[in-house]
Design a protein around this nucleic acid. Structure first.
Lengths: 149, 149
DNA sequence: GTTGGTGCAAACGCTTTGCACTTGG
DNA sequence: CCAAGTGCAAAGCGTTTGCACCAAC
């Protein structure tokens, strides 16, 4: 059961429709080995002359983020200038996940089961801060790029 | 020695000039108890009719981020739509810091000495991933807002 | 047949840029 | 002095929106 299939199933389960544009978008997302942006997705699906409108891409990406099938990361392939820097996304199986992102090739390794709240628990207790969630992202070099350096 | 004073000293130490607009910007930043955006800073300093141009604000913010005196966070006061969502910043003493941000009032608590790399060390070793840096941000409720709920 | 989805194009809003003017050291 | 900094206005560009049309269920 691929990620795209899971998403499609979940979409119809939530009363959403399974349309051709959505299929195409999901298929394209699965081919990325790096974080991707909405704009990039638009280009890769044919851009201005392609069959899928820009609005549809953005709307679908938003939908997927809302339903927990895409996760936003801060990594950006294009050295962010950051004039309206593109937001980047990574497909995830649903649930709490974090990412290790290779600064060179952009490969993403997802992992769960982080113990950060435990780690910060003492600090939070001392400060009387009630932790409700957190954002963690790790940067570095993947195995392949380490060798290449 | 206030944050603004430290920044000014650092600026001239790096061959930058201490100008009236920069003083005004630093002073205003110190008054925030929440993450702020460049646009907000612009408005608070008088906006279109004020003495400081928008470009100066953006250039100064960038400068401060580069020199490590401002840190970008993901929290946003305005429910991010995220059409060109404003980037938010927090003043920091230089060095590696993380933030706990209250989801209600936006109060920021900075802390250092996180042991995340230690925590993730085992995982990274197993995956042959070489950690070079990380981004961590914690969300929740500060002491005051907990009581208010 | 409904109504959710789509495409188009225009609008939006944050951010950047070019250029002539000002000012700090 | 003169290079760094500033202000202005225009341009950039990712993202959103209004609306008429289309197609999934």
């Amino acid at each position: 059961m691929s990620w795209a299939e899971n998403v499609l199933k979940d979409l119809s389960a939530h009363g959403h429709r399974v349309t051709a544009p959505r299929r195409a978008i999901l298929d394209r997302i699965m081919q990325y080995s790096q974080p991707f942006s909405a704009e990039q997705l638009f280009r890769d699906l044919g851009g201005e002359t392609g069959p899928i409108g820009r609005a549809t891409i953005y709307r679908t990406v938003d939908l997927l983020v809302e339903d927990g099938w895409l996760s936003r990361v801060h990594w950006s392939a294009t050295k962010e200038t950051h004039a309206a820097s593109e937001h980047a996304y990574v497909p995830v199986e649903q649930g709490h996940q974090h990412h290790m992102i290779c600064r060179k090739c952009g490969t993403v390794i997802s992992f769960e089961g982080c113990d950060i709240e435990t780690l910060l628990g003492g600090l939070a207790r001392r400060l009387n801060f009630k932790i409700e969630g957190h954002w963690l992202e790790v940067y570095g070099l993947c195995q392949v790029c380490q060798r290449a350096e």
